[in-house]
Design a protein around this nucleic acid. Structure first.
Lengths: 116, 116
DNA sequence: TGAACCCATCAAAGCTAATTGGTGCGAACA
DNA sequence: TGTTCGCACCAATTAGCTTTGATGGGTTCA
């Protein structure tokens, strides 16, 4: 009998206002060259782990580690099908980050206060 | 005689298409808790270093280190005035990141290919 | 000038994150 | 039910980043 994906300790995709700390976790997850490759591969659509492994030429355990980091940051969701596991980018997570960045940029051109 | 800011090895704010590697550098720069505090302080407008030092309660050398990281990522610009140095957020850099994130999210819901 | 001040830089120490090789669990197939 | 396969997880090593304390350059003010 095929089995559904077991929900693990994944941060649910944040509602509208993204916490600074969640934003930071996502930024950190994205800020690794290898993970960025994974993200870019998944930007083209869902992929299974074995596919990613060969596409990126990675050790299985290494890929698994980085997928976990991305998943815990809420950037990815996974889905088990038979003995394969498929990962997919979570567009809402990226959208959350975009909103957070927009807020930062809003008032940053204000002139400096008098200073010391 | 007042002196103008000396241009250092700062990545010029990227034009429209942000390179993956530049994006990564910016993400990494943002992904540190202390640097995020700095960014959030600067989101309110330009500040001088001494102000940031006392506002955030940081050792001067520590702050200086992190400001450099942010500056090299193109997220900040600085400006010298007398013996003070003012830092400011570069909204274009954040905007560049937002665009880069939007591109990622674009086609990520495509179904998985057949797999192994 | 000389003294005081702001800030950048540097080397050493401390800490966190990534890589590697090995192990184990659950699912399918014979 | 035994075997194979895909994947997650773990501990130890390795690599990379941050902190700290000290030093020096450049700028104002007396």
């Amino acid at each position: 009998m095929p089995v559904a994906t077991v929900p693990v300790a994944t941060v649910p995709v944040a509602p509208a206002p993204l916490q600074a700390d969640q934003a930071r976790q996502r930024l950190k997850a994205l800020a690794d060259p290898l993970r960025l490759q994974v993200i870019e591969a998944l930007a083209g659509g869902e992929r299974c782990v074995c596919e990613l492994t060969s596409e990126l030429g990675l050790a299985q355990s290494k890929l698994s580690f980085h997928l976990k980091v991305l998943k815990e940051a809420g950037l990815l969701v996974d889905r088990q099908e038979g003995r394969w596991v498929y990962y997919q980018l979570q567009p809402e997570a990226l959208e959350g980050l975009r909103g957070w960045l927009a807020d930062l940029a809003a008032g940053c051109t204000a002139p400096a206060s008098p200073c010391c």
